[in-house]
Simulated assay, not measured.
Amino acid sequence: MVDLDDWPGSGLSDEELDVAYNVRRKAGPELFERHMARYRAESESAVDGLPGHPGIVYDEASGERLDVWGVGDDGPRPVFVFLHGGYWMALSRAESSFMARALYEQGIATVVPDYTLAPKATLEEIVRQVRASIAWVHRHGREHGLDPERIVVGGSSAGGHLTGMTMVGGWQEEFGLPADVVKAAMPFSGLFDIRPITRVYVNEYVKLDVERAAALSPALLPHGRRCPAVVAVAEHDGTGFVEQSRAFAPLWGAGEAMVVPDRDHFDVVLDLGDPESAPFRTLLGLVRSL
């Protein structure tokens, strides 16, 4: 039984929780906008001229779409499914394909799904949509140049939380998927126990109570099969994200969290577009181990 009153930061004041989890304020408006501009510019550059299949509807119920990038003529490629961040209420697939070219050059395809943002969608619905995108890759990936037996999932911030919600057990059967559909995972700066969100500004949009937050927390859910995973976080991340990553990595059997030096909450994941970076090499190792 989960103790609903015992969660990370439960003894902190609202102001202290804001310091721990309000990474946009920590960055400041100028640096935040510079990061967002990099997301857009590097994504546009990465997919310019890249073979792929953009704009595919993966979920008939919501009409949400995904982009497939970096397919080749060498048969179905292993696929990295990237789930964007934005605290479940911002960003889209258009800013989230910055790793596609670097992965393409290593024989790996990239899939970037959209999901309906809060408050238009509940977090339960967002999780369902993300899981539906994994189901689409497994069922239809081969006809689009993807190997459904080599799916690696990753994401940043809220996307790290959503990555965790694809790693846990108990949901795959509902979608007609094998328990090991996700073969490996690499969440960045994720939230794995989201009960603290009930007391920060984000809850104006996601509208969670503690009980619902607990039911949507990967750290508190049955793990099922533990896929290989690397839990990454930035050295200069929000303290809440650092603490959650450090706690989730050993819980998942992934050893210690990978702390990326000289990076903050927003630019750490951009290292996936740099073939020389440690995060990119780590992801490459995960994919090639399959």
Results as ranks from 00 to 15, higher is better:
14 D>Y: 06
27 A>H: 13
31 L>Y: 12
33 E>Q: 15
35 H>M: 12
40 R>N: 07
41 A>V: 11
65 R>Q: 15
68 V>H: 03
82 F>C: 01
82 F>M: 08
83 L>C: 06
83 L>D: 02
86 G>L: 08
89 M>R: 15
91 L>A: 11
100 A>I: 02
116 T>S: 13
117 L>V: 08
127 V>W: 04
129 Q>S: 14
133 S>P: 04
141 G>S: 05
142 R>Q: 10
144 H>K: 09
147 D>P: 07
148 P>S: 08
152 V>G: 00
154 G>C: 12
161 H>T: 08
163 T>N: 08
166 T>H: 01
173 E>Q: 15
174 E>S: 15
183 K>E: 09
186 M>E: 10
186 M>Y: 11
187 P>V: 08
193 D>N: 03
194 I>R: 01
198 T>Y: 14
202 V>Y: 12
202 V>G: 00
205 Y>H: 14
206 V>P: 03
209 D>Q: 10
209 D>E: 05
210 V>L: 13
213 A>D: 02
215 A>N: 14
216 L>Q: 05
219 A>H: 03
220 L>A: 08
221 L>C: 06
228 P>C: 12
247 A>M: 07
250 P>H: 11
254 A>R: 04
255 G>D: 05
257 A>V: 07
259 V>T: 10
259 V>A: 08
266 F>D: 02
267 D>Q: 11
269 V>E: 04
270 L>D: 01
273 G>D: 00
276 E>H: 13
277 S>I: 05
285 G>E: 08
286 L>E: 04
288 R>G: 01
289 S>D: 14
